[in-house]
Amino acid sequence: MAQPAAIAVQGLGKVFRRGDGLSVAALAGLDLVVEERAFVTLLGPTGCGKTTLLRILLGLEAPSGGSVRVAGRVPVEGQVPAGAVFQQHSLLPWRRALANVMFPLEMRGVRRRAARRQALDLLRLVGLEEAAGAFPHELSGGMQQRVAIARALAHNASILLLDEPFGALDDRTRRLLQAVLLDIWESRQLTVLFVTHNIEEALTLGDRILVLGQGRILEDHAVPLARPRDPLSDAFAAELLALRRVFAAAAEGAARGRDRSIEA
């Protein structure tokens, strides 16, 4: 490998202790490498450990075992190795859109005037310049997520982590925002790890699709489609069907594995 990987995870494990004292493994021996400037989608059903993985990559959660490197460093809480976009309602509701985008800049000690200018540029980039003075509750769900993307970009990190950012949006808005995100990925030469449970979304966006289940990567699927991708094309439809089969087989395999482990 000529370049160091943007994200490198080896043998990652995370065990949660539940209220009743039982331990539950959210992640078990997960290996993951994301090359620089790749767009990788992480696909998996709810509760498969996707969010836990992202929280560990952001330093919000400490791993129980294994090694994690983001941009070559061990993620630490409060030190940002990557920009993050969360699921809906993650904007600070008492701050206007502009002030939300300025937040990471303020935390980094950027001077107010410079922070303002940068934040305005980022809002322009996501097409929301005129909403700078609006409070989050005055914005639609799609607009809120645009602001969240602008805020994630304010870190100036080359890595972007997204946790089902468009999950709560209607179809049209989602396609729009997917296009915005792809544009930004290309123009800013970012590395993106995008978590979703939507197979079509994973296929629309990713160079690689990692199918997650049972706390590890079950399938690493390279997407052979060229960009821009047309979801109405035959090639896309065929690939979607193939991916559904991969996903189903992986899920079935995982279920068999689970049964075996219960019997054992």
């Binding site: 929280r55 952001l58 330093g59 919000l60 809480e77 409060g78 030190q79 940002v80 993050a84 969360f86 309602h89 993650s90 600070l92 937040f103 990471p104 303020e106 935390m107 980094r108 805020r151 870190h155």
Partner: peptide, 19 residues
Amino acid sequence: LFIEVALANGARRAALLRH
């Protein structure tokens, strides 16, 4: 969520209180 968002956006523990 607000606390985690702030931490993920570079806030240290001391800044959490104020911001």
